[in-house]
């Protein structure tokens, strides 16, 4: 009786001990059980949609079920903080957007994690940022708008999805690039920006493409510029900021996967390979397209370069705008 108790206690100790101290004798090749992805946003947004769309194929190429757990809060900070502190065994990962590692720490003093707290698995899709006006607006091109805004400094308002969102940074970067002064009217998300534009409450606005695509395709709103690196097939007539000679003056919403920083390299490699394979699947590409997003796969190294570049741009601008203090 006592013996079996002792054995049970010993087993229990083994089970809770960190793997670095006592190597688990029953270690199996990764992945051996379902993988949990923390989505740091509520159900229904583009980040959630993107990972749900690729979930079945990602699970297939990993050979284990992929479980999505929505942990919204703090604009994504609650979920990301959880992943940063999770056990680095490859079973708790983040399905997030890049801005949770760049804009969020730069603008929110209470966010304490850093890029170096995560290991990059890869980027897989973008939700392009767009600058748009209502159909029939006096400006047909970005240049015409810039002209108008230059002549009327401070009196032209713009709508964004809120302070500290990609759309806000896109408009601030635009002002910086062209030397404009616009007045900011923040709304709570890309959907309300769309409404404000359609209702004529703000003359110009920035939003995420997925939220406005239906009214852009119907011709009710017109895109003056996108943040994508090349023209998007769904709105082929809309020029990119790169074409305008301003490659660093716009941000896209990048859908990315991360693991906690100390996750062993073979595990991260296995995950990256699975993501790459998933994003080559024509069915996945079509499904991502239909959701208003665009497939843009980047391997871990390329992703990290882009993240650090975006971080530099964002941090500099946040400091200039006196955000996050």
């Amino acid at each position: 009786m006592r013996r079996s108790l002792l054995v049970a206690a010993a087993l229990l100790t083994l089970a809770v001990a960190p793997p670095a101290v006592v190597p688990r004798a029953w270690a199996q090749p990764y992945p051996a059980r379902p993988i949990q992805f923390i989505v740091p946003f509520a159900t229904g947004g583009p980040t959630d949609t993107a990972i749900r769309v690729i979930q079945p194929q990602l699970a297939a190429s990993l050979g284990v079920p992929v479980v999505l757990v929505n942990k919204p809060g703090g604009g994504g900070a609650v979920g990301m903080d959880g992943v940063a502190k999770a056990r680095p065994d490859g079973y708790t990962l983040a399905a997030t957007v890049r801005s949770t590692l760049t804009i969020l720490p730069a603008t929110q003093p209470d966010v304490t994690y850093k890029i170096s707290d995560f290991a990059v698995i890869g980027s897989y899709a973008i939700d392009s940022g767009v600058i748009l006006v209502k159909a029939g607006a006096p400006w047909k091109t970005l240049e015409e708008f810039v002209d108008h805004a230059r002549k009327n400094p401070g009196s032209v308002t713009y709508g964004s999805a809120g302070l500290g969102t990609n759309s806000y940074f896109n408009m601030e970067l635009l002002q910086q690039a062209y030397g404009l002064t616009l007045s900011h009217v923040p709304f709570s998300g890309s959907g309300p920006v769309k409404n404000a534009l359609l209702g004529g409450h703000v003359p110009i606005g920035a939003a995420a493409l997925s939220a406005v695509l239906s009214v852009v395709r119907s011709g009710d709103l017109v895109v003056l510029a996108t943040s994508a690196s090349k023209r998007l097939p769904v709105i082929a007539s809309a020029p990119t900021m790169t074409e305008k000679g301003q490659p660093d003056a716009s941000l896209s919403t990048w859908m990315e996967l991360y693991a906690p920083a100390k996750t062993p390299k073979p595990i991260v490699d296995r995950l990256s390979a699975a993501l790459e394979k998933t994003m080559r699947d024509p069915d996945v590409i079509a499904a991502i397209d239909k959701a208003g997003l665009t497939v843009e796969y980047r391997d871990p190294a390329a992703t990290l370069t882009l993240v650090e570049r975006e971080n530099a741009v964002v941090t500099r601008l946040a400091r200039k705008l006196n955000l996050g203090r």
Binding site: A42, G44, G191, R217, A286, K290, G292
Partner: peptide
């Protein structure tokens, strides 16, 4: 008619549309 979610519940419903590859809006 606009693909706009006026409240939290509708946001989930909008997500359901998009996951199924359907964009609610003027063209629906």
């Amino acid at each position: 008619t606009l693909g706009f979610a006026p409240n939290v519940v509708m946001a989930v419903l909008l997500g359901a549309f998009l996951i199924h590859g359907v964009q609610p809006g003027p063209l629906l």
